[in-house]
């Protein structure tokens, strides 16, 4: 399918461009065509494809789990109910294992993060061309179907988690306690500026690493899928070996997407646990 592009680099670039809606340089509103127009739109534009798929997948998650929650009873569970309860118990175990305090927010937060990120990552396993090609038939110029390859999405989640970390740090330790943790920690009090720099970096590294780890893994995975997809246009020998490569990478990717969702969830729990610990 790469045949309709001038060269492979254009193919790759096209697949890594979001469908952006915003204000053009001339003042009109619409979808951006190309990287230059995206740049002109600045901050107040929106990645329609990322938002659409992320909200859609989130709603799918909420719909499945809400249905199970409504049907929840003490009778023997069946089918989807069973799966949902298994997930709930898995998350509950993880939270109990890592989070020492008592907080009604942490477990639902972890559940949302795990399932939602898993679903977003799962989009990576759909062959790279299918949905964008269908969309192009409908006149949509760009479409990236994996929301977690968009840093806006991963940072949106990690910054929310970071806000929670700050909120609980201040709530549990008090503003003074939180400051003390940042200022007086690795070295004695008189080296406060150095402490502040060190602990500040540690603090800021939390959301950044959280977001970049997920984004980097999925972006790289997507990139490899795209590179493999290019092989399909290089004759039937390359095409067949590309098929095997795609299969192998997809199977390996099943592990990666689950692992990334799990890491994001576990680190969120651990960060919140650290924020809630009062005896430091």
């Amino acid at each position: 399918m790469a045949g309709s592009y001038a060269n492979s680099s254009e193919y790759i670039k096209h697949h890594l461009t979001n469908l952006v809606y915003g204000q053009h340089a001339d003042g009109s509103w619409g979808f951006a065509h190309g990287a230059d127009e995206i740049k002109e739109m600045g901050f107040w534009s929106i990645n329609v494809d990322s938002m659409l798929f992320s909200v859609g997948l989130g709603c799918l998650f909420l719909w499945i789990f809400r249905r199970a929650a409504k049907k929840a009873s003490t009778d023997a569970p069946t089918g989807m109910q069973n799966f949902v309860e298994m997930m709930i118990e898995f998350i509950d175990d993880s939270v109990r294992g890592s989070f020492s305090g008592k907080n009604p927010l942490v477990a639902p937060l972890a559940l949302t993060i795990f399932v939602w990120i898993f679903l977003m990552n799962l989009m990576d396993l759909i062959a790279v061309d299918h949905i964008p090609w269908l969309a192009s038939l409908l006149g949509v110029p760009y479409l990236k179907i994996v929301p977690s390859t968009d840093p806006n999405i991963t940072f949106g989640m990690s910054l929310s988690v970071f806000a929670l970390v700050i909120y609980y740090s201040i709530k549990m330790k008090g503003p003074g306690g939180f400051f003390a943790e940042l200022a007086f920690h690795p070295f004695p009090k008189f080296m406060m500026p150095i402490n502040l720099v060190l602990e500040g970096v540690t603090l800021i590294a939390k959301p950044v690493s959280l977001a970049l780890r997920l984004f980097g893994n999925l972006y790289a995975g997507e990139m490899i899928f795209i590179l493999i997809a290019i092989m399909y246009s290089g004759g039937w020998i390359l095409g067949i070996s590309g098929g095997f490569l795609q299969l192998g990478w997809a199977i390996f990717h099943i592990l990666i997407i689950t692992l990334q969702a799990f890491i994001f969830m576990t680190l969120t729990i651990v960060y919140l646990d650290m924020a809630s610990q009062t005896d430091h």
């Binding site: 938002m51 909420l62 789990f65 809400r66 559940l111 949106g156 910054l159």
Partner: peptide
Amino acid sequence: NATLIGQTITFIVFVWFCMKYI
């Protein structure tokens, strides 16, 4: 771009829904 804000709001709403009804 503003997707960041959109995703943040969506995230908060989803977590709230999950915490309340699921």
